[in-house]
Computed example of a mutant assay.
Amino acid sequence: MILPPQHPLSAGLTSDSRLVRAYRGERSDVTPVWFMRQAGRSLPEYRDLRVGTRMLDACLEPAMAAEITLQPVRRHRVDAGIFFSDIVVPLKLVGVDVEIQPGRGPVFSRGYADAAGVAELTAIDPARLDEASAPITEAVGRVVAELNATPPSGGGAAGSNEPGSTPLIGFAGAPFTLAAYLAEGGPSKDHLAARTLMHADPGAWRALMDWTAELTGRFLRTQVLAGASAAQLFDSWAGALSLADYETHVAPASTKALGFVHDLAYEIPDATGDAAARATRSVPVVHFGVGTGELLGAMHDIGVDTVGVDYRIPLDVAAQRIGDGVPLQGNLDPALLAAPWPVLESAVREVLERGQSAPAHVFNLGHGVPPETDPTVLTRVVQLVHEASA
Rank of each mutant, 00 (worst) to 15 (best):
L9V: 13
A11W: 02
L13M: 08
L19Q: 07
R24P: 02
R27L: 03
S28N: 06
T31S: 09
P32N: 10
F35L: 14
R37T: 10
D48S: 15
L56T: 08
L60A: 10
A66C: 06
R77Q: 15
V78L: 11
P90A: 06
L91D: 14
K92W: 10
P106N: 12
R110Y: 05
D114S: 07
A115N: 01
E120L: 12
L121A: 05
T122A: 14
A123D: 13
D125Q: 04
P126S: 04
P126A: 02
R128Q: 13
D130K: 01
D130R: 12
V144I: 14
V144C: 07
P151E: 08
A157T: 15
G159F: 12
N161V: 14
E162N: 07
T177N: 03
A180C: 13
P187V: 14
D190Y: 02
A194N: 01
T196V: 13
T212R: 09
F219W: 06
Q223A: 02
A228Y: 00
Q232H: 08
F234T: 05
S236C: 09
W237Y: 15
W237R: 09
A238C: 14
G239F: 04
A240F: 04
A244F: 01
E247S: 12
G259R: 00
V261S: 08
H262A: 14
D274H: 06
T280L: 08
V283K: 01
V285F: 01
V285S: 02
H287C: 02
D305G: 09
D324Y: 00
Q329C: 08
N331M: 05
D333I: 03
L337K: 09
A339C: 13
A347N: 12
R349D: 09
E350Y: 01
R354I: 04
G355P: 13
P359D: 08
H361A: 06
G366T: 10
G368V: 11
P371W: 12
V377L: 07
L378E: 01
L378H: 00
T379S: 15
R380L: 10
R380Y: 12
H386S: 11
A388P: 12
